[in-house]
């Protein structure tokens, strides 16, 4: 049973010169204890989509349709609600205890005038029924899980390095033992060495605490290494989703193939190959039919005229393409 089911989600931006359909009919599920990767080039709508998932859609963005059903029942007793329908209070109760969010710009996500301790305490005290003493003993443990020393508790954000900030945020995200953590490009602001160690910390803590992780990154190599399933987003839609092993072994959508081909490997001398030609389309004016057709080597008149829908090619491996190339 999935814990999140997004159905036909549409999030648009109301702009002066039109409407940007950044997320335009996304359907996807998140299962318990899994690491779901979301890949896709920048501008494909990944951030907008997860903003919807945590209901932090701010003007000029608005939800234009769809539903997000979460199941926060315990011990197999389902308890489903549509996130987009519940009240502000009910939503607040789900935040952090059911769903935590590590935003894309998380370098600036800490309050510059509060000590780390106080920023962790406020949410624990307000959102759980732990006493002050219990909370105080919990804090060093949380930090230890992300390899930070308890000294960090008394520091201010400006005293932390980028990697330490990110670890602090990961520790915070797990403070109330949520069922699911969303991490939007959690390491893009870090240097390569910290990227790897922060990602592996995030991976470890989520695995150990059996928390589902939705990991957004455009780095296909990270998806190949860390995720259980991966979804490929293109132009506000998901074009391919499946078990990571399946998708990497036999990618079906030409866009997915291009993305995988662009991973630097030892064989191609560590160089990134230009996997996909052409420029990304604008969300204000998506191409007709299959949105990838202007850049697709296999595009035909059919692709220009109609939008392909998702078809299951092997168990759990869905692709939206009129010209699938299925290796068997």
């Amino acid at each position: 049973m999935e814990i999140v089911r997004i159905e036909d989600l549409k999030i648009y931006y109301k702009l002066i010169d039109g409407v940007a359909k950044a997320v335009d009919g996304v359907s996807i599920k998140v299962y318990p204890n899994e690491i779901l990767g979301i890949a896709g080039e920048s501008g494909s709508g990944k951030t907008t989509m997860v903003n919807g998932l945590v209901r932090l859609v701010k003007p000029p963005a608005y939800i234009a349709g769809g539903s997000i059903t979460v199941n926060y029942g315990e011990n197999g007793i389902p308890k489903e609600v549509n996130l987009l329908r519940i009240s502000e209070n009910e939503m607040r109760n789900l935040r952090w205890s059911f769903i935590s969010y590590i935003p894309q710009a998380s370098m600036n996500s800490l309050n510059p005038l509060l000590r780390v301790k106080d920023q962790m305490m406020d949410v624990i005290r307000e959102r759980s029924n732990k006493s002050k003493e219990e909370a105080l003993t919990l804090l060093p443990e949380l930090l230890k899980r992300v390899n930070l020393s308890p000294q960090v508790l008394d520091m201010y954000p400006h005293e932390l390095s980028g990697g330490m900030k990110q670890r602090t945020i990961i520790a915070m995200a797990l403070a109330l033992s949520p069922k699911i953590v969303i991490a939007d490009e959690p390491t893009t602001a870090l240097d390569v060495v910290s990227q790897l160690s922060v990602l592996s910390t995030l991976y470890d803590v989520c695995r150990k605490s059996k928390t589902s992780l939705v990991l957004i990154t455009h780095d296909m190599a990270v998806h190949a290494q860390l995720t259980d399933r991966v979804a490929i987003m293109y132009a506000g839609k998901i074009v391919e989703v499946g078990r990571t092993a399946d998708v990497f072994k036999s990618p079906i959508h030409p866009y997915t193939k291009g993305l995988i081909a662009s991973i630097p490997t030892i064989e191609n001398g560590g160089k990134r190959l230009e996997g996909i030609s052409g420029i990304a389309p604008s969300p204000k004016n998506w191409p007709t039919g299959c949105r990838f057709h202007p850049r697709c080597p296999k595009a035909t008149d059919k692709c220009r005229g109609a939008e392909p829908s998702m078809v299951e090619y092997e168990e759990g491996h869905f692709v939206a393409c009129f010209h699938p190339e299925v290796k068997k």
Binding site: K58, R95, S106, N111, V123, E126
Partner: peptide, 24 residues
């Protein structure tokens, strides 16, 4: 960004106003 984060944490509006907005 730290305000979005505070909201994502599910803090009450009063706490956000006091410890995040006013404080800064």
């Amino acid at each position: 960004d730290y305000l979005i984060f505070a909201e994502a944490k599910g803090l009450k509006p009063g706490t956000i106003l006091r410890n995040y907005v006013m404080k800064n």
